[in-house]
Write a protein that binds this DNA or RNA. Sequence first.
DNA 1: TCGATTGTATTATAAATATAATACAATCTG
DNA 2: CAGATTGTATTATATTTATAATACAATCGA
Lengths: 124, 124
Amino acid sequence: MTRFDIDTKSAVPAYQQVMQAIKLEIMSGRLKNGDQLPSIRDLAKLLKLNPNTVAKAYYNLEAEGFIESRMGSGNWVKFVPAKKDTLRRTMLETELKNFLEKAVSLGFDVGDVRLLLERFMKDE
Amino acid sequence: MTRFDIDTKSAVPAYQQVMQAIKLEIMSGRLKNGDQLPSIRDLAKLLKLNPNTVAKAYYNLEAEGFIESRMGSGNWVKFVPAKKDTLRRTMLETELKNFLEKAVSLGFDVGDVRLLLERFMKDE
DNA sequence: TCGATTGTATTATAAATATAATACAATCTG
DNA sequence: CAGATTGTATTATATTTATAATACAATCGA
């Protein structure tokens, strides 16, 4: 797993930074299905965090279906490509719906959003 | 202004509910440029909130450019159609960028988002 | 001008959240 | 089996956030 650091000055809570970093590792493929994650205590020591903070990150990652915790033994990446694709898609759809809600409350419709998106695609 | 209520059981803070309701009034056109808003104390009494809670909502609405507060006199909707359109567009772009960031961190690209969006347009 | 109305500032309280300290319990390994 | 390692649960502390109580200051209007 790629090393990462916690920005203690950030407004983003430490446990969320841990979650984000690990998700990124999984999404990018650097962490594969079945890979074992560092133990809570080891990662806590490495990042200079309290073990409970890492435990909270792992707990949430498990709830979101990214990893699996087994008592006494450790934490593993849970990454079944097919399932993960539907998971990612579900997450994307949730985020899109949230965004569209905001757009509508701003007075725009889905067509407006589509036009703006296409401008984005041309620009970059 | 259309009457609205505060859901005290909601996880959304009261001051944010006030902001959202007033933005909606402005965006929908029910509140027009130059319209005077109820005084902080009046709205607080109406909604059964502390005046400071309403003041916080008004303060943020002013910071976001939706209204204007004048000491001793009151609060007015600031809604210059042209400027407001650019404001809305800026807000939309900000929200879109935030969403696209999440999409990318999920492993999707802008093209994927466009396809999903078009499916949304067909379905509804 | 002067009282009433308005927004603002200060301070306090309550609730939620993040982090930490510590103890507990399941699993693995020799 | 026994000790070490692992995740989990409980409780406490610190910080942030939302709300409230109160006092202050600018503006308006009779």
